[in-house]
Design a protein around this nucleic acid. Sequence first.
DNA 1: GAAATAATAGGAGATATCTCACATTTTGAG
DNA 2: CTCAAAATGTGAGATATCTCCTATTATTTC
Lengths: 223, 223
Amino acid sequence: MKIYKGAKKQLYLETNSIGHLFSFPVEEFMEIHEYERDDWIIQEDTRPDYLFYVIEGKAKIYITHQNGKVSLINFINENEYIGEMELLHDVYYTKGIQASTKTICFALPIYYYRKRLLEDAKFLRELTKFLSLKATTMAAKYTQSQAFPLENRLADFILQTSDEGVYKEKHVTVCDYLGVSYRHLLHVLTQFCERGYLHKEGRNYYVKQYQSLHELAKVLRNE
Amino acid sequence: MKIYKGAKKQLYLETNSIGHLFSFPVEEFMEIHEYERDDWIIQEDTRPDYLFYVIEGKAKIYITHQNGKVSLINFINENEYIGEMELLHDVYYTKGIQASTKTICFALPIYYYRKRLLEDAKFLRELTKFLSLKATTMAAKYTQSQAFPLENRLADFILQTSDEGVYKEKHVTVCDYLGVSYRHLLHVLTQFCERGYLHKEGRNYYVKQYQSLHELAKVLRNE
DNA sequence: GAAATAATAGGAGATATCTCACATTTTGAG
DNA sequence: CTCAAAATGTGAGATATCTCCTATTATTTC
């Protein structure tokens, strides 16, 4: 992890306007952190000292269950918060946050800014919108995972993550994300190939029948 | 649905202080609604005209999937909001909200109060806490449903909902809530009886071995 | 109070998904 | 470059969960 200082910090402050986030000046004690891919931004079960706001990159929220299973709860993208739960609640089981690409965040020391943040309508309004989306997303994932088999959820995931018709996510990550075993994921991918929806070459899968995948995916969404 | 007027309205306004919720007066246009058990407070896919705050009773959030399956997303209890998603977002797939007991809510006309609410730090701070808990709860339910079989989740649910050692929730509701088929729920309940954890009499189940149920339930929680 | 509707109950077979075991390939650290 | 760790791949059998079907009770409704 690196902390940007001096000119580099200035550059990021100027490039990424934060005027819409806070109604009081935060530059003085705000830091800018850079995390490498796979770095832990927050360790599971360890309270963070900062409230983060992602300006570049992508991270993953993980929780480890008592039976050893690991769930990838969700991804965090640019313009999203990290550590907001701990800002709001004194008691909270902290989830692990891991950078999945190089990630750059604004980092506001909680001990210093907490009080003012919780009185700042502008900040709270942004955070409220973010949290409401988070709640909605989780509710959707929850109900979808119960109402539909992997087939449908995977089709949706492939359409969302494939780039120029190529799907090449890591199986390991995907099973944590979709909450199924490695074995089963492979099984369903193989089926997709057999049915001609995908074509496998090495470690990449090429989308051959968008239509079929769309059919499978569309039942997920009412919205 | 009834709307309280005059003295009855006054009574509720006096009994339930709302000073901690808003920093401006809302009494003038705020209504007080009473819903019977099974009334729909909000219809699925129909934007509500009010932001509600539950002061008495309990309600259920439902979504209907394209394949006809119904998910009971969660319960809403006293001191929780209803319709906050629509207040925050212009585009939103509205879930259905059904009273599961007689439910009394404050009802604030959105068209009238929206602007001021979104500028009120006190209101936003409360809402932020509520939404963060909602997001956390949904995330927990999501990952638990993927990491553990019904056995564990049902044990937890029985411990949470049984009263004086008696469990008597409606199976129909429970399967929507835990996201399993009616058939399977019965099957696991029967197992619990066979193992002596529960004893069935008529439509009630008596908890016989708290310890065993606790064992099953405790793996769900790290927190 | 009879008829319609919702809830409970359980059998039987299908299928979605998991666990475990093991082999191969790729990646990363030194 | 080399070795260990991570990721991929596959078989076989177990289990969790679903679907469909059919009865039997409660609960509503007219």
